[in-house]
Design a binder for these strands. Structure first.
Lengths: 258, 258
DNA sequence: TGTACATCAGTGAACGCGCGTTCACTGATGTAC
DNA sequence: TGTACATCAGTGAACGCGCGTTCACTGATGTAC
């Protein structure tokens, strides 16, 4: 009758609810004040309970921070996925544009959370493995786009299949077709290996040069957003809307994504 | 006989020296521990003096932080300038590569200081005008390269002249020559205006499309460095040396700089 | 050159603050018989 | 259904910490006559 693993008793239900409420209060505090605002005491004050009570739910401040980081990665990943879905399946270039704009919109709406995951590391905090796993979610969106962008075009339209049981590395030094913008020769060895590993993880079968250009566009995207949010564009491309749109188009040509 | 504005009395000499020593101690603390390590008390401990004594030199913690920020901008600017100078005057592409590698090398060697100026803003700190002025220094290096990269090629080799007394805006919608990578039509209005202002400040006479592509490459550069330093490349392009070199080459083609 | 006064550097104690975390406790909820 | 016990949630006081900043002070350095 009952869902397995669902809370059975009232106590368990209350615990699950409060665990979530604490995290939400922490998220609000964090969004309002930034990294400094995240103190267990401030959260407990907002919830009207003793600060010591939080220790029944999160064993330390760092665990609460970890939960926030995971949520932030999940949120930006979900935003990108929704954008892709909205652009229609297999819509390579439109998908890229939609994803970029969605990522930026999320960042602008949640600057502190963006800074938490893409800004300077929080001092004294060491990100556990769990955060890395959720960080990949938004990167998978890039992978899907690169898979769509494959010059060969096969599987174009369908989402990238999950990695085969033991996928063989795609030929690393694989040269791009002639119509692509000039890349300077084949990839150097280590980079080719890294690109192959990335391809296996998020875009199986995609050649290393495309993966690498995708990574370049990816770092451009986040560099641009960080510059915008952290005030580095004041006095130049500020407000950044048109610059952002132009850059995203240019990077679509650069990868290239069609 | 004495240099004007130079300290005359022993007291003034001692004051100038201690002001510098305090800043250096703060810089060391900061480099070692990061933003959290910068406390007046920690600095005073390292110097073996009472914490209250620092107030004779810096009126508050924020003023000391401001001094560090200015120094960091100056250091990264100087590194880029030295790289350009080492590559020889007017060496467009080689200059670009040298500057990019120098900027990255400085960032890798001084990760906390890099995070201070290009990472998330320090909570509760509002950067005064003075920091903005020194932030421009490294950007001027980009401007010089873009001036060298002008398709027309005039003034190629010589550094960009200072802005004329009342410089006219270069034609904003100016179309790039045919051999450039495709830009999607002319720049939108606001972006063209912003690019013109940037051109006036750091690369007079350079068309808006080149300025814009330079900014795109610039954000790519800093996005890539931030990803490397902040751990976002773990599991993909890590170590980042080859990826960095490849990206810098690709961006040289993209701008394009010759 | 010597004296009287003003200026400044540096001290040490103190204020008030907020933090993370621990601990013994009380009262409510759940469980076994 | 009722009772006896175990488990758990939440409290409030406390510990120990480090911080930025202020303030009255003493002693040294500089200056005016």
């Amino acid at each position: 009758m009952t869902t397995p693993n669902a809370p059975r008793t009232a106590r368990e239900r209350a615990r699950a609810e409060l665990t979530r409420e604490i995290k939400e209060a922490a998220r609000r505090q964090f969004a309002a004040v930034g990294a400094d605002g995240l103190s267990l005491r401030a959260v407990s004050r907002e919830l009207g309970m003793a600060s010591s009570a939080l220790y029944r739910y999160y064993p330390s401040r760092d665990d609460l921070l970890t939960a926030l980081i995971i949520d932030a990665y999940d949120a930006i990943g979900a935003a990108a996925e929704a954008a892709i879905a909205g652009a229609g399946p297999g819509s390579g270039r439109a998908g890229w544009m939609a994803a970029c704009h969605a990522i930026r919109a999320w960042a602008v709406a949640n600057p502190h959370e963006y800074a938490l995951i893409y800004g300077s590391p929080v001092p004294g905090y060491r990100a556990p493995q769990a955060t890395i796993a959720s960080a990949i979610r938004v990167v998978r969106v890039l992978g899907g786009l690169l898979a769509d962008a494959r010059p060969e075009g096969r599987d174009g339209g369908r989402p990238a299949p999950p990695p085969a049981p033991a996928p063989a590395h795609p030929a690393p030094g694989h040269l791009p077709p002639a119509h692509l913008p000039p890349a300077r020769g084949p990839l150097p060895r280590d980079l080719a290996e890294q690109a192959a590993i990335v391809a296996d993880a998020i875009a199986p079968g995609v050649p290393g040069t495309v993966i690498t250009r995708g990574l370049i566009a990816w770092t451009q995207l986040f560099g641009m957003i960080s510059f915008e949010l952290f005030g580095q564009l004041v006095g130049s491309a500020d407000p950044a809307d048109e610059f952002f749109g132009f850059a995203v188009e240019a990077m679509a040509d650069f990868i290239p994504v069609r």
